[in-house]
Design a binder for these strands. Structure first.
Lengths: 355, 355
DNA sequence: CTGAAAGCGCTTACAG
DNA sequence: CTGAAAGCGCTTACAG
């Protein structure tokens, strides 16, 4: 059914049908009602391509998940190709939240996952073909910046999630990230509140901004509280389970074993749990552990892991809102925001007698 | 940049540009090369809406996740609105696999999550507006069948995942599900191989086909092996953690406690673990536990849960392939398939001395 | 208030 | 082999 058909049926012109659909003023209520009724009855919906070609916005955004393998070790555990994204703890909440928010703002969502540089061309095409009005990039790495900056120059609207180190670019865009520093401060403060004064940290891969900021939060909080640290209270991990295992073994076998360890992500906490088990120690009786990320598995660890939650939902929601605003205002906004990180108390931390 | 611009640049007509893009025969290689070179250089890509309006297929499918609350208790744990889909163990693998497979077949993927009946209208619109060529529905319930059947009658191409009880409809469609019966047979057979002869089962909600088939597999396998069962070896659960807890308590406090329990999903296994802990029993030394689903948390339980894996990836991939084939052949296929369920051996089952 | 007509950017018979 | 032209189904100035 085309608008022409509907028009004939009602003895009107396509113009009028179009006007009521697009909510033009100066149409008598009676006509309006008649048209809407016929639309409902005949399940008419204007052809999206025709509308689009005639100048109406598509109202479609893309969420583009970048998971392109260069030589870097991945942040999250990966096994077969199938599970790459599945194992990525933010895939589900991000896609879900973007979809949800876009839906509320009356936009459609295209999902595109790029595994290879070849896929990047397809991503580019989505823009050039005018399929979408804008996109949210997730997990961008340096190799992809050029593409993105080109897109911005071509006046496409862009938001980025979980993308670091580009704040100082001269390309306006929306950058939404978690507040890693603040989350780290919360973790350490909590440990201090519980009475711990001997703290260790297993860091993430210090090439990543998130790892750096988490370490910075740890160090500065201790300094602020006048707590001295042993040099060997810092173990340089890399966000993997294995390095968590090694880190815990190392920290707990030293001369001054800490009473609490801040593990820079939950994946490493799994390794730390194993190591601690093997050492015959108990969590939290002998050693308190706090993680970071509130990964999906953290409530199921034994004991349930106390950790810092980063709400990827909130981040995704915020990025979506700002992106769509940029689209509607036809002006790319420049926004750099960090979203709150929250302490999630579970069972892996214990108060210590203050002596 | 429009095809007209490119044509002028090259001293050709739009027709020729179009012909090389659409791979028409009878074009000299020289022309072809020249055009492609210019396309690359100028980042030209044909406007998708214009193409579509001119009759070329969109090459876009939708994945429609139905999570509409009627009065039914949900299969999976749900908390706040944000986490509804996030907690759904198949969201991520399904979206990922559909996207991946569609990408390989050169299709785009629209994601749509419907929480309410109101959202269903939007779903309908995606079809009527001709935005997509077909769709995969996930988790359809009875209330949505009418909509789907209407769509099929209107000649839209449809596949369904995780949708039961509609096999005997007269509407052709693609139905892809897990083989619950076979998975159950594998679970029980494994337990028998380990030497267990006294088995208990905690069933799922027996209104659901999956629960029924899992129970049927349990019963028939035992019968085939000539193993008698006590009536009280069957506990009627409902797929929730609590019912797993109650079930384990019930089965293990009876007069003839089993040496192994087949728990009809992993969520209930969490409850069973708790109960067993409280009873002072150890897994697997005192009691073997096998789950179903291979939910994301099952490797992290302590001990890691042996379970039956349903590959939502495979299911999604298969559905995507068949859907796109239906689209390209312009004929809705009728296909009913069950995908393999696989035993995942971990640490919650132990061999028993044969006396 | 409303219709006739141009135009959006392609594709594809139709000619040549 | 290739161009001119019709047509896809809308929207929106332009008239009236």
């Amino acid at each position: 059914m085309r608008s022409e058909d509907l028009a004939k049926l009602l003895g009107l012109s396509r113009s009028t049908i179009s006007r009521v659909i697009n909510n033009y003023p100066d149409i008598p209520q009676a006509t309006r009602d008649k048209v809407w009724k016929a639309i409902e009855e005949h399940n008419y919906a204007p052809n999206a391509s025709a509308r689009n070609l005639a100048g109406v916005k598509n109202k479609m955004i893309a969420i583009i998940l970048l998971d392109i393998n260069d030589n870097e070790e991945p942040h999250h555990v990966k096994t077969t190709e199938d599970t790459i994204i599945h194992d990525n703890p933010f895939f589900s909440p991000v896609v879900n939240a973007v979809s949800d928010q876009a839906n509320k703002m009356d936009y459609y969502v295209l999902v595109s996952i790029a595994y290879s540089k070849k896929d990047l061309k397809k991503v580019q095409n989505i823009f050039h073909q005018k399929i979408i009005d804008g996109a949210i990039f997730v997990g961008t790495q340096e190799a992809e910046y050029e593409l993105i900056f080109n897109l911005i120059e071509q006046n496409h609207k862009i938001a980025m999630i979980d993308t670091s180190e580009v704040y100082n670019t001269d390309h306006d865009a929306i950058y939404i990230n978690a507040d890693n520093y603040e989350g780290s401060v919360k973790a350490v403060s909590y440990l201090l509140e519980l009475g711990h004064t001997s703290l260790g940290i297993i860091t993430g891969n210090l090439k990543k901004l998130s790892a750096i900021e988490r370490l910075k939060g740890f160090e500065q909080t201790l300094t602020q509280h006048g707590i001295e640290r042993h040099k060997d209270a810092i173990y340089h991990g890399d966000f993997t389970e294995n390095s968590g295992y090694d880190g815990a073994k190392h920290l707990l076998s030293g001369p001054n074993p800490p009473t609490a360890i801040f593990v820079s992500n939950d994946t490493m906490a799994i390794g730390a749990y194993k190591a601690i088990n093997e050492l015959g120690l108990r969590i939290p009786e002998d050693i308190s552990i706090i993680g970071f990320d509130n990964s999906f598995f953290s409530p199921y660890l034994n004991p349930a892991l106390t950790t810092i939650e980063i709400s990827f939902s909130d981040i995704a929601k915020r990025a979506t809102t700002l992106l769509i605003e940029s689209i509607e205002q036809e002006q790319q906004r420049r926004i750099v925001e960090k979203e709150d990180a929250t302490l999630i108390k579970r069972e892996s931390c214990k108060a210590i007698k203050s002596m």
